[in-house]
Structures are given as structure tokens and as C-alpha cells.
């Protein structure tokens, strides 16, 4: 019974890690929107290419944080699962 529980918990933890990575959708949409707006800004004002690029990369990196939180949660669930100890 205890062995069954261990495998059951491990399998559900892997499922949970996979479902948690759906959070990768949000940063993808946000980063794509930021890149599109950056393209529009460079098209309107090609002289400001450098500063537009810097601001866009900074904003994208900040928008990526929530996706990385879900990545950290998924990695903890798979490799350092607190429930199978």
C-alpha cells in the first residue's frame, strides 16, 4: 500500500509539473506583444532603435518572471518533491 502511494504521488507530481507549465503561455503572449510594439516603435522612429531595444528587453525580462516561477515550481515537484520524502 505504501509503495503504491509513493508511485501514485510521484506520478501526480509529474502531472502537476506539466499542468503548472501552462503558465508559460502568459509570458509568451506578453513578450510577443512587447516585441510587436517594439517593432512598431522602430518603424515609426528608426533613430531610437537602441533605446527601444533596451527598454523592450528589460520589459520582456520582467514579464518573464511569472513563467520562471512556474518553472521553479515544476522543477521542485519533479526533482525535490517534498511529498515523497
Amino acid at each position: 500500500m505504501s509503495e503504491f502511494n509513493k508511485f501514485f504521488v510521484e506520478g501526480l507530481a509529474c502531472l502537476g509539473a506539466g499542468i503548472g507549465m501552462i503558465a508559460g503561455m502568459g509570458p509568451g503572449i506578453g513578450q510577443g506583444y512587447a516585441a510587436g510594439q517594439g517593432c512598431a516603435a522602430v518603424g515609426r522612429n528608426p533613430g531610437a532603435r537602441g533605446s527601444v531595444m533596451t527598454t523592450m528587453l528589460l520589459g520582456q525580462a520582467v514579464a518573464e518572471t511569472t513563467g520562471l516561477y512556474s518553472l521553479v515550481v515544476a522543477i521542485i515537484l519533479i526533482f525535490a518533491n517534498p511529498y515523497t520524502k
Binding site: 520582467v62 518573464e64 518572471t65 520562471l68 521553479v72 522543477i75
Partner: peptide
């Protein structure tokens, strides 16, 4: 958040 951002990005590439 700053440390998790750097850690997560590099760790995801490594993995």
C-alpha cells in the same frame, strides 16, 4: 524575484 529570474533562465538552459 531578481535572483529567481537569473536562476530560472540559466537553469532552464542547463536542463
Amino acid at each position: 524575484s531578481m535572483s529567481l529570474r537569473l536562476f530560472g533562465n540559466i537553469l532552464s538552459g542547463t536542463i
